[in-house]
Design a protein around this nucleic acid. Sequence first.
DNA 1: GTTAGCATGTAAGGAGTTACATGATTTT
DNA 2: AAAATCATGTAACTCCTTACATGCTAAC
Lengths: 202, 202
Amino acid sequence: MARSRSDVLETAILGLLNESPLHGYELRKRLNLLLGSFRAFSYGSLYPALKAMVTHGYIVGTESPTTPPHALSGKRARIVYQLTAEGKERLQTVLATSGPAAWEDESFDVRFAFFAQTDAETRLRILEGRRSRLTERLESVKESAARTRERLDEYTLELQRHGLEQVEREVRWLDGLITTERDRRRTRPSSGPENRHGQDNH
Amino acid sequence: MARSRSDVLETAILGLLNESPLHGYELRKRLNLLLGSFRAFSYGSLYPALKAMVTHGYIVGTESPTTPPHALSGKRARIVYQLTAEGKERLQTVLATSGPAAWEDESFDVRFAFFAQTDAETRLRILEGRRSRLTERLESVKESAARTRERLDEYTLELQRHGLEQVEREVRWLDGLITTERDRRRTRPSSGPENRHGQDNH
DNA sequence: GTTAGCATGTAAGGAGTTACATGATTTT
DNA sequence: AAAATCATGTAACTCCTTACATGCTAAC
């Protein structure tokens, strides 16, 4: 029931390995592309996590004997990981959850990244949960800002204004996605998100 | 030379106490208003930090004997902290630095929040450093995106697109601030930031 | 020939949260 | 009368990074 960063890591590994088997080094690159250079994971987190997941029976590691076709060069043996049946089941369970643990700051991005593997109803619930989480935050910041506006200098105010604007923009982004998901529900039962260019840009 | 979150905490405490003496509980509220509900600090971080700063001689805590005028009610004694001469010196040193440690993700916000207490040249250097840090990140994301665009599903792409847009918007925000700072340098030698409404909104 | 990238791991340590402990006061 | 808020602290624990250890291959 924990919902910290290790869960993010586990989910990301499960999701990526479900797309294709990978070895640790490559996995880390994909991971950090997926999560953004910010909030990247180091090897010191990744390898122990893989180890733990092997113990749990979610994945198995196979020693890949060098690059197969054209090489007799002994490139260091890579350990290619892939999901077990249990791991696939686990992934389905994770992707089916839609509580606060799915839409909080730490986890929302990973969950969104695997929306293609998530069913439509869950997608919608997560997007809506995320949206109300953000508007809730907006409320509380605006409220406490109103109580302390007088004594803040202009730079602090500007920082606050900019922060609010970023969150507001995120809400509008979610609105677009929610609309798209709802539309899709009545028309095409499934496919990716419509490209929403020009809706929050410029 | 460390540049982790504890530095952020120290800087924030120094900056806030320079504005007015405060006790721990109140300090934490201001802190979390300043830094945003996200990246908030808990008491488990704050009180030990205050203790350490007392040891360093940057601050002193005075036991405030209840709310002074109208009360004989024995409200629990609050410990009001204020900067020492050493602490003020320390704050000046911190606010005068403008290396990467000032414009990385973790620290930029705190530094910006105290720009009113920072001299104009340092402000400009930090804003420019931050800007180039972000464009650098933009480059590297775009580059690796170009190398892997084919195999990403639409949701992952949308996430990436949105991430880029957020960073681009941040760069434009910095551009506005930099322009304002430069203008000010030739006209009024000092005051707060001009309000830039309408420049990145809508 | 040396730097950079590929590849896998471990150990130690830092940083911060959660939970606990305690108790008064204000609001509902 | 209960619940929330004020107020200060500590201890244990989790999580993650840094630094280390190892060695191969490709590029400059």
